[in-house]
Design a protein around this nucleic acid. Sequence first.
RNA 1: GCCCCCGUAGCUCAGUGGAUAGAGCGUCGGCCUCCGGAGCCGAAAGCCGCAGUUCGAGCCUGCGCGGGGGCGCCA
Length: 608
Amino acid sequence: MFEKEQQTIEAKVRAYCAQNDIPLAELKWQPIPFSGEWGISTSFFATAALETRAGKKIQVPKRAQEIAEQIKGAVLSVSKDQIGSVDGISRIEAVKGYLNLYFSTFEYARRVMDEVLASGPDFGRGAPKNERVMVEYAQPNTHHSFHIGHARNTILGEVLARLVEFAGFDTIRASYPGDIGLGVITVLWAYDKFYKGQEPAGIHERGQWLLKIYVEATALLEKKENETPQETAQREAYDAERHEMYRKWDAGDKYVRDLWLKTREWSLAELRDILRILDVKIDVWFFESEVDEPAKEIVEELVKKGIADDERQQGGAVIVKIDEKLGLTKEKYRTNIILRSDGTTLYLTKDLALAKQKFEQYHVDRSIYVVDVRQSMHLQQAFAILKLWGFPQAEKCYHLGYGFVSLPEGAMSARRGRVVLFKDVMDEAIRRVLAVESEKAPELSEAERKKVAEQIGLGALVYSMLSVDNNRDIVFDINEALSFDGRTGPYIQNAHVRANSILKKAKTLNFEHSTFDYELTSHEIQLIELLSRFPLTVQQAANEYRPLVMAAYAYDLANTFHSFYHAVPVMQTENEEIRLARLRLVAAAKQTIANALRLLDIQAPEVM
RNA sequence: GCCCCCGUAGCUCAGUGGAUAGAGCGUCGGCCUCCGGAGCCGAAAGCCGCAGUUCGAGCCUGCGCGGGGGCGCCA
């Protein structure tokens, strides 16, 4: 937001250095820490180090301070006419090798407020980048229920999509559910054999019921210790039935296909409802079952191109010796199979086919995969093969890996039914908020209370998933995830509510022309500075593909607002000019908190 | 055997080459006659080890120690 001033000063610094034979290194600007005032700074250590390398015998820190002081003098000196004073800068200091430029707050405060309030919900939006990004996430297997690990995936993916979209990328949201495989067939088999027609009516009840069937079926099919011969025979018979069903599915048997579609729809109905709750709107659905045929075709193409080696004649599979083809001498991507010896495809094959479709049909320039870190090797292999295949977009394929979500008692396991379901956590979240709401907000109607409970409960859950960097594992503790105190979603939402509360109390919001031509408190300055950082934070989070960056910013902003709120009176301010200016600042803060929350897929309530 | 991730305060985590390493929870102490206390203000407490690169290392490189994950017919 202060690029112009930065450039003006930079030009002066360059001019001075050129005149005085100082080999200027790259200038990096950053906000001044610790000051409580507001401005930007840069250091001259790198420049001094360059001089050292050029042969001068000097102490770098001392020399850096020297340069900073000289430049300060030059910038301030009006007599040398090519280096005059700079508009908008109130004060310049040279300290410890740094050049600090303090802004004249009056001018900048007005500029920041103007931009926030004129842009409103678009404040922080980046200019269009003419580049298309596809984010693939929310890809649970069907015929199971949606657990808290799926929730982490979906939330990370959605927030990433919101960030890159707001940052200026043309964005496509894609989901890739695993709707076929032995696990799916296992549920089909058990449903058909033991439970046909007994499904419950509710969307979530039915989805969760499928998981129950899966757990039971897995137990029936699992080899046990000390099995009697009869038990062994029974188990093997079941297993044979299951595989026969898979064969029929593959052959397109109508009965099995209908059964599959019907049960799959139950899962998808539950998934769609959870996505509705999370305000996720998927643009493109790719089903694993639909990329099977294209996958088989690309195997032949890769063999023909000499990328894959066909060992089928020897009774083997089709493989890609990735390291060898890339000319690597060290083991890195290894070798992997793209077609089983029985002619069926694998996950890797399907991902290759899917990537081809993304590039050719959807023209994506960047492809982001939000997938569990345990599949990191698999995706690196896929990207490497895409590169061998000649897709330039392979360079811009990115695996956003995230650590898995486990429970205090160990890893989650759908097979064993040891999972924490998203819906259960969410229901509990709402219960907990409702329990405190009657005390916190007694004036709310029943309907409002329920709506707010959903906003706050989800806010807590979502923020707890975003406030940890994605590559870290999470041990899910419901009390931590649903905490409303401290560094949490509700803390940020509360800042929004408080800002709203002040604005509601104001008789008029006629502050369009109010100025900040009075002595600002450090709380006001810090709040304005935070607001001004929002657009750059959007870009950083999007460029680094890191939702955490925005989650951290939102907390800092809320924290700064809460401090301001306690320290600086707004409505009680006697002076009307100052009161209006502060109201304007509160309005800008409310808007920016709302924008940040929206990017984090968290609702910004007006009351709570 | 090889590859990837992680090691920062009692606990859970930020901080990816610059000034004084920050939060939350927990502990201890203050603040509701004042715009909403889901809040604010304060205190105690910390970079796994050894080398190296650099003017400067929690951050980069190497080695070691400790924890987690992965490695040709699962997804």
